[in-house]
């Protein structure tokens, strides 16, 4: 039984490694067989060469460093604000009613449309880019916090009322343990959104960053550089997401006992 399970785990891991490799191989075969002209489908070697070039010149590292720094700031500010907003909206019906329509409407407008206005308010330096990322990170966290807190079974609040549980311990002993999973999944979504929007925002306005590298690649008809950007974006985003999932597992393990105790 246990041997079979180990085998399955190994199989699973090897399949998960093999499938991207298979895609890579298919890409290589397609481009080597010249099914499409090289201007249309860049070969993996060309992408690798461009990658080597960008790494050797330090250009990639510089762009990536800038992007990650922006991500850190924008994500922290945005998801922090989202957490507070979600909590306030969940706990105070008046607050929710005041801001809900604005919140829902703003959420639905792509940040691209706001760029002139954002420039007006925040200038064109780093603050501007961080605000764009923060906007993207804000909504998923706010939404899932709201839902997480709202999704707590009614009975728990009734029990808390019967026992006259004070607000701080209601928050600490009941709300947090019950809502952390939902909130964290929202924060995870925020991280992904922040990363996606960061690159997108850099495509439009920036002097550096991985998005700008891709945009210049497009302007300069260097599709190998664009492809390097696509691959790097995917890999970095994947790593960020995986890292967050590991962190999440850790956090939830730590929270497991109080949650049980409170319930």
């Amino acid at each position: 039984m246990s041997a079979a399970r180990i085998d399955e785990a190994t199989l699973r891991r090897s399949v998960m490694v093999a499938s991207p490799l298979a895609v890579l191989l298919a890409w290589q075969v397609l481009s080597a067989a010249r099914v499409f002209p090289p201007e249309v489908l860049v070969s993996p070697q060309a992408v690798l060469a461009a990658f080597g070039q960008l790494t050797a010149s330090g250009e990639l590292a510089r762009h990536l460093g800038e992007s990650l720094q922006r991500l850190l700031w924008g994500f922290s500010i945005g998801s922090g604000a989202g957490l507070l907003f979600g909590l306030a909206a969940a706990l105070s019906p008046t607050f929710a009613r005041l801001f809900d329509p604005l919140f829902q409407a703003l959420r639905q407008v792509p940040v691209l449309a706001f760029i002139p206005l954002l420039i007006l308010l925040f200038g064109i330096d780093e603050v501007f880019k961080i605000v764009i990322i923060a906007k993207a990170a804000f909504f998923p966290t706010a939404l899932s916090t709201l839902d997480g807190v709202r999704g707590v079974p009614k009975a728990w609040f009734e029990v808390a009322r019967i026992y006259r549980t004070p607000l701080p311990s209601l928050v600490w002993r009941v709300l947090i343990p019950a809502t952390v999973p939902a909130v964290l999944s929202g924060v995870r979504l925020s991280l992904t959104r922040a990363w996606l929007v960061l690159v997108a925002a850099e495509l439009i306005v920036a002097d550096s960053g991985i998005g700008q590298m891709m945009e210049m690649g497009r302007q300069m008809f260097r599709l190998d550089v664009v492809m390097v950007g696509v691959v790097v974006c995917g890999v970095i985003g994947f790593a960020l997401d995986r890292g967050f999932v590991l962190l999440q597992a850790r956090l939830l393990r730590w929270r497991a006992q109080p949650a049980g105790a409170a319930a």
């Binding site: 002139p116 306005v205 920036a206």
Partner: peptide, 9 residues
Amino acid sequence: NLNPQAGHA
């Protein structure tokens, strides 16, 4: 490095 619209704003 700004596109013309952003530059105008």
